[in-house]
Simulated scan of single mutants.
Amino acid sequence: MHRFRHILYASTGIGDEVEGLKQAFRLARNNQANLTYLLFFPALPESHAPYHEKYRQFMEEQVHAALARARATLQIAESEVEVHLELISGDDPPAISIIRYQLRNNHDLLIKEAEPRSEGTRGFASLDMTLLRKCPCPVWLARPINRPREEIRVAVAVNPGNRETAEHDLSINLLQLARSLADTCNGTLDILSCWDFEFERYLRGNTRVDIPEGAMRNSIQNAQAGHQHELSLIIQASGIGGSFEVHRLRGQADKVIPVYVRSQKIDILVMGTVARTGILGYFMGNTAENIMHELECALLALKPAGFVSPIKA
């Protein structure tokens, strides 16, 4: 079972973050982990120097009030999950300050409530996307989940066709982590993986190539069978047990995964970000970003081993 030991909850002090804190408390309790609450807020200008201390006190009171509401909702005593509180103010962008704190303290999970979006807008705001791109540890972007823990649905997206060792290992880590998470929710893990015969759109109907329909069908069936075989191997290699359902979705991942997540009312999606190992600050691949831009659920995102953040501690 995958366990987090040193969890960081990050906040910019804007909005009601009780839902995000509830998810952080549950994870800390289930993992018997240390929990740090980091509040980053902009520094007041020097012209407001007489108000600096009152400003800081106000922000700290807001944190304690939010912690108390989350504890009361979950009926978690202070002795059950202790919280270390850190308040930092400065002029750097919030995402950069949060990542620097994580790097200095070696937290193994960053949790943050997703920035609010305007009605009808999906995906994540720029602050959250910076964390997803540049934070080296797993990033959990929390969103409200309006059903009991026993009914929460967890899904994981994996690509079994990865040839690089780091991406193969990432798929195994995704499955193992999602399995552990699903065990604390409704117990069933939805495994999502996409396949397609990418040359079909180029070859079908091309009079110059003129591939017979039977040969086309065989190629499609071979692509489907190959994907099924590779997916079975990666699931077996992960060693996960318990209840899980495998969904082999045909089509491009950035098109079909968001549709599946919305239609099936998935509450938490676990997925990887494509970042080339050892390359400083390499951004996520287009597929990962496109999926994230369409999500409305909570997200837990992992990077391959060897990712190096462009942010320095």
Score class of each variant (00 low, 15 high):
4 F>N: 04
14 I>K: 15
15 G>L: 08
16 D>P: 02
19 E>H: 12
20 G>R: 03
22 K>P: 07
27 L>T: 09
30 N>M: 11
32 Q>I: 06
35 L>P: 07
35 L>T: 01
36 T>Y: 04
41 F>M: 04
44 L>Q: 10
50 P>T: 11
52 H>Y: 10
55 Y>A: 03
58 F>M: 05
62 Q>Y: 05
64 H>Q: 14
66 A>Y: 01
69 R>C: 00
69 R>D: 01
70 A>D: 04
71 R>M: 03
72 A>Q: 14
76 I>L: 13
81 V>N: 09
85 L>N: 08
87 L>N: 05
88 I>Y: 04
105 N>Q: 10
106 N>L: 13
110 L>S: 07
110 L>T: 08
110 L>W: 02
112 K>M: 14
115 E>C: 01
131 L>I: 09
144 P>L: 06
144 P>F: 10
146 N>W: 06
147 R>G: 04
158 V>C: 05
159 N>S: 13
167 E>V: 00
167 E>R: 00
167 E>Y: 12
172 I>G: 06
177 L>E: 10
183 D>P: 08
184 T>C: 09
193 S>H: 05
194 C>W: 05
195 W>A: 02
203 L>F: 14
204 R>V: 15
206 N>V: 11
209 V>D: 09
210 D>T: 06
216 M>F: 08
218 N>P: 07
218 N>T: 15
226 G>C: 01
230 E>N: 12
232 S>Y: 05
240 I>R: 03
242 G>Q: 05
243 S>G: 10
245 E>D: 04
250 R>C: 11
252 Q>M: 11
252 Q>P: 09
258 P>Q: 11
266 I>M: 12
271 M>W: 10
271 M>R: 08
276 R>M: 06
279 I>E: 03
280 L>F: 13
283 F>G: 05
287 T>L: 08
295 L>N: 09
296 E>Q: 15
304 P>M: 01
310 P>Y: 01
313 A>M: 11
